[in-house]
């Protein structure tokens, strides 16, 4: 018995050390797990020799058809407070956008006006990685269904460095197509 007691104590101490060591190791592993995945592995969102082309606009197109002049007889039948000389459709034209990069078509899309009556603004957004360096960018824009082809056109040479954003926007107030 006298030999067993120290042996039991040694065993208990060994077990306690094992538990403490185990806790330290497991807590450390958990901390390393949290610490590592909080920032690693790093994510590459763009190639080293790539730039980013972003097309974005929100623009109400022109009305879908010409206004019609109301005749005197028609106006007379209308309530006095609604006698507008012209009858204009609410619906707006879809916006047709075509983008060419170095002569190659990149986008050729039609964006519909928003709203149940299609009387809201058309909006578009596209994002595409392109190679950095000099490019010839041609953007054509049509916001009027009564016009064949495109009623806005803009060409520009861009020379983005890697990681640079080239933004294509549209603002009728600022003269139409903007390439920044």
């Amino acid at each position: 018995m006298s030999e067993q007691k120290p042996a039991a104590q040694v065993g208990a101490h060994a077990a306690a050390i094992f538990r403490w060591a185990g806790q330290v190791v497991l807590y450390a592993l958990f901390a390393i797990f949290i610490g590592y995945f909080a920032t690693q592995p790093r994510y590459r969102q763009l190639g080293s020799d790539e730039a980013l082309l972003r097309l974005s606009f929100t623009h109400p197109g022109q009305i879908i058809a010409n206004c019609r002049e109301r005749g005197a007889e028609e106006l007379a039948k209308m309530p006095a407070n609604m006698r507008e000389a012209q009858d204009c459709p609410r619906e707006r034209s879809p916006v047709h956008v075509r983008v060419e990069l170095d002569g190659a078509p990149l986008y050729d899309e039609v964006f519909s006006p928003a709203g149940l009556r299609r009387d809201g603004a058309a909006a578009g957004y596209r994002r595409l990685a392109i190679s950095a360096g000099e490019h010839r960018l041609k953007v054509e824009f049509n916001d009027d269904a009564r016009v064949n082809g495109f009623n806005y056109e803009h060409s520009q040479t861009v020379n983005p460095v890697p990681g640079q954003v080239v933004l294509i926007d549209f603002s009728a107030e600022r003269g139409g197509i903007q390439i920044k």
Partner: peptide
């Protein structure tokens, strides 16, 4: 106006 190539997510 720029996009970082690498991110620490």
């Amino acid at each position: 106006s720029r996009v970082p190539e690498w991110l620490g997510l």
